[in-house]
Design a protein around this nucleic acid. Structure first.
Lengths: 163, 163
DNA sequence: TTTTACTTGTTATGATATAACATTTCATCT
DNA sequence: AGATGAAATGTTATATCATAACAAGTAAAA
């Protein structure tokens, strides 16, 4: 059992299953799930927190690839474009999607104490932004394509230590 | 009449009134509304779009100040901390608040065609993030302090030109 | 008026991200 | 299998965004 997000949860198999899900999805969509893309997703999954592009790059470099920045950014672009990962804008960092496959707008809770990131598993996450914006967007004539929600605050652990 | 956000609207006096509002607020809160801070807010207000820190810096430099990056970032930090401006995370850019004084979570619509930014004037903007997250945050034990919502899509003008 | 906090000036550097182009690999068609 | 066009990668260089650190000045409070 290891810490994930703000809770505890056994993910000894979740890397493998997430990778498998990505494989299946890529086969279905005729996307190339190449070695580097797979490796970057594995790195994100194994850390299970938000990582900067250069942290990923360091990891790749440590494994022998002489990886330059575009290598990481291209893999991340692929993963983000296809819904296997998200960018956390507030942190300029990337995190594996907690529920790939499901159509959703990412919604994160970000701890300002320890930078832990928890992706909310709201099924409202898909509808809520458009619902909230619906009126205003329509009034402005704006066509929403994607939306992100990022909440900052304190996770349980940091609330305790700050207390 | 000039273009603001995605619409048209007369703001010949809105710079002055926003500056005045900031003055009043700073006096009340005993904050120093210094020359640089005022000037940066004026720049943001006059452009009425999201500006990068270095664009602001260029403007300051053009006015004779030999401004280095920390000058802009400090002023922006002040303005953001005190609610006179917001950072648009997706663009790494800053924009004057459309409704300062009102307690609110910023909510933006960002055009991917022209990068125009419109701050939604939802009074739900304040409550909605916490409402949406409420259950999940409580379940996770997370204490939300701030939240931002950023929607991407196409503004009316870019919808027309893309059509 | 001394002291204290805050603000600014300045240099240097760190962190994040992309442009551009040559090369290789992959998918597909014949 | 071989041709070919699309996609991915390797690599160099550089653009863009942001902050650390410290000296000097200015304003507010005691």
């Amino acid at each position: 059992m290891t810490k994930i997000g703000f809770g505890i949860h056994d993910h000894s198999h979740c890397i493998a299953s997430a990778i498998h899900a990505a494989e299946v999805c890529c086969a279905r969509e005729k996307l190339q799930f190449t070695k580097t893309r797979r490796r970057v997703l594995e790195i994100l999954l194994s850390q299970h927190k938000a990582l900067g592009a250069y942290e990923i790059l360091d990891q790749l470099a440590a494994e022998g690839q002489n990886a330059q920045p575009p290598v990481a950014y291209r893999a991340l672009d692929f993963l983000v474009s296809n819904g296997f990962a998200h960018k956390v804008e507030k942190l300029n960092a990337y995190i594996a999607c907690s529920h790939p496959g499901a159509e959703h707008a990412p919604a994160f809770m970000i701890c300002r104490g320890c930078n832990a990131v928890h992706e909310a598993c709201l099924d409202t996450a898909n509808r809520a932004p458009k619902g909230m914006f619906g009126g205003a967007a329509q009034a402005a004539g704006f066509r929403i394509e994607t939306a992100v929600i990022e909440a900052s605050g304190l996770c349980p652990a940091c609330q305790s230590s700050a207390a």
